[in-house]
């Protein structure tokens, strides 16, 4: 019996986790590779980070070159390059500039990079032997911290020191004198918490969506192995699970796009909120 020998749950959980192996290649954690007190040996997800970044760059470079060639020949944009241009413009205009406002063009490269990077990382997990770096809490936390820095530093530069302090110690309308100061001081921890919660939600939402998808897919695959020993029924179970998996995989493609969109959109919304805080 399989379930006696192998713990399916353990495999599923480990499969979604980071590791030092891809396909059949394995490497060791290098204890000497330190960055301060932290070990920075590249893991599977780090490798896929690089792959995603490279693919994003490749896509954009090729699309840009084709677009320039089409423009030079005065041809209408078409095909792959036009599709990429449309997507890039959508993220730039309808996600970044629409939510940030007049300064949106300044933040657009950040939001665009975020969107396509996250999108490619999400999609990489759907390829056989691929892995989703965004299914790693460290990756989404790293991106969320970057978003946090951009939101807060962007706000600080826009509002100035006094204006920025007002986002932490708010002026309460209708209050004056010592009461206003007391309320401001009381509100400060809540405001700071509010600033922290936004990127935290970004981080956990993306991670949760990605890991959950993988866990669902792996669990349904696990069903096949759990019941594979049953005579006759194993066929039915296999076919049913495979059909279900196909559906979930389709859903995952949608979720990969949706979550990249949500991450970029919310980052843009938060940047816009800080930019227009008065």
């Amino acid at each position: 019996m399989i379930q006696g020998q192998i713990d399916i749950g353990e495999i599923v959980l480990h499969h979604a986790a980071d590791s030092y192996s891809i396909f059949m290649f394995e490497w060791r954690r290098m204890e000497s590779l330190q960055f301060g007190p932290f070990n920075v040996t590249p893991t599977k997800h780090v490798v896929f980070l690089f792959i995603a970044a490279f693919l994003v760059f490749l896509t954009m470079k090729v699309a840009g070159r084709k677009l320039e060639a089409q423009r030079a020949n005065e041809n209408a944009p078409k095909g792959f390059a036009n599709a990429i241009e449309a997507m890039v413009l959508f993220v730039r205009n309808d996600v970044a500039i629409a939510n940030i406002g007049h300064d949106g063009a300044k933040f657009a490269p950040f939001v665009m990079t975020l969107f396509f990077f996250v999108l490619y990382m999400n999609l990489l997990g759907l390829i056989p032997h691929g892995a989703t770096p965004t299914g790693n809490l460290a990756v989404t936390a790293g991106l969320a911290v970057l978003a946090f820095l951009v939101i807060e530093i962007g706000g600080f530069l826009k509002l100035g020191p006094a204006g920025y302090m007002r986002t932490i110690f708010p002026t309460i309308p209708g209050l004056s004198g010592p009461g206003a100061i007391a309320m401001s001081l009381f509100m400060a921890p809540i405001e700071i918490l509010g600033k922290m919660v936004k990127p935290f939600a970004l981080c956990v939402r993306l991670f949760g969506n990605m890991v959950a998808g993988h866990l669902v897919i792996l669990s349904i695959m696990g069903i096949i192995f759990l019941f594979g020993h049953l005579p006759f029924w194993n066929w039915g179970i296999g076919i049913a699970a495979a059909t279900l998996l196909l559906g979930i995989m389709m859903l995952e493609i949608f979720v990969a796009m949706l979550q990249a969109y949500v991450f970029a959109l919310l980052t843009a919304v938060f940047i816009g909120l800080m930019q227009h805080e008065h």
Binding site: L13, Y20, V46, L49, G135, A138, V211
Partner: peptide
């Protein structure tokens, strides 16, 4: 595998 998916590792944040 040194970690479960729920334990963020600083090395990966650094690479990110």
């Amino acid at each position: 595998v040194p970690t479960s998916p729920f334990e963020p590792e600083f090395g990966v944040i650094f690479w990110t």
